[in-house]
Amino acid sequence: MNDPTREAMLTDAPSPARQRRTYSIGELAKLFEVTPRTIRFYEQEGLLEPERRGQTRIYHDKDRVRLKLTLRGKRLGFSLAEIREVIELYDAMPDGNARQLQRLLEILAEKRANMERQLEDIRLMQRELDDVEIRCQEALDNLRRQPSR
């Protein structure tokens, strides 16, 4: 299975030419099919750090990669705190990539365990629904067999 964070880091690492590429909030919103409000929210949460020129936000390739990782993390069920932690680990140290990947594996294992518990809960609920449905159908069949008064 591919690691989306590692893949993004490897395939989206800014080249010297791309480091100069900047984006407006509208361009990023269109690129990722989100609203500018979503981008401002992620900025407020510390996941994006655009350059400011007066009231204008200037997003660099680093912000584009962070937004991509954030949106992938959300799709995988990561909390914003978990996403922030993984991104900060990567930014913090030269060996951040190894630590980031280790932490990402831990989070994925937690998510998988939670999903397994949820699946078992769903299976139990399905069995209970099946049982109630069978009893209701039997009661209805018994009522139908009784002569009308």
Rank of each mutant, 00 (worst) to 15 (best):
G77N: 11
R103N: 10
T56W: 06
Y42N: 02
R64D: 04
I83K: 01
P94E: 11
G54P: 03
F32T: 13
K62M: 12
K111R: 15
I107A: 00
D3R: 07
R135S: 09
R117Q: 12
E7Q: 10
E7W: 08
R18Q: 09
M115C: 08
E51Y: 03
R117E: 13
R84E: 06
P50R: 08
A139D: 11
K68F: 15
R84S: 15
N142I: 05
Q55I: 14
R75W: 08
A92F: 08
E49G: 06
R112G: 03
N97T: 13
L143Q: 10
S148A: 14
L31K: 09
Q19P: 04
R21A: 01
I25N: 02
D61V: 11
E33R: 06
Q19E: 15
K111A: 11
Q55Y: 08
L10R: 07
T56S: 05
R40Y: 03
R149Q: 13
I87M: 03
Y23P: 00
R112V: 04
M125H: 06
R123L: 09
M125K: 09
R127E: 14
L10P: 03
I39W: 01
Q44F: 07
I122M: 15
D121Y: 04
R40P: 04
P147Q: 13
P50I: 03
I134S: 05
D3G: 01
L140D: 07
D91A: 12
N2H: 08
T38Q: 14
R145D: 13
F32W: 15
R75G: 04
C136T: 12
E33P: 01
G46Q: 10
M115S: 13
D63M: 06
I83Q: 00
Q126G: 06
E33V: 10
D95N: 05
S79C: 05
R103Y: 14
P4H: 09
E110N: 09
L108Y: 08
V34F: 07
E85I: 08
E7I: 08
Q137Y: 02
E88C: 04
K30Q: 14
A17F: 04
P147F: 13
I39P: 00
T11P: 02
Y59K: 05
N2D: 12
Q19M: 12
R127P: 00
E27Q: 13
Q137M: 04
A29D: 08
K111Q: 11
F41G: 04
G46R: 06
E85F: 14
V86R: 00
L89P: 00
L67C: 09
I39T: 01
E43H: 06
K30I: 02
Y59S: 06
R37D: 07
G96M: 04
I58W: 12
L143M: 11
R66G: 04
C136S: 10
G26V: 01
L28Q: 03
F41K: 02
R72I: 15
S24L: 09
R52C: 03
L101D: 05
R145M: 12
S24H: 04
M125R: 10
Q118M: 14
H60Q: 14
Q100K: 02
H60V: 06
S148W: 11
E82I: 02
R66K: 10
T70I: 10
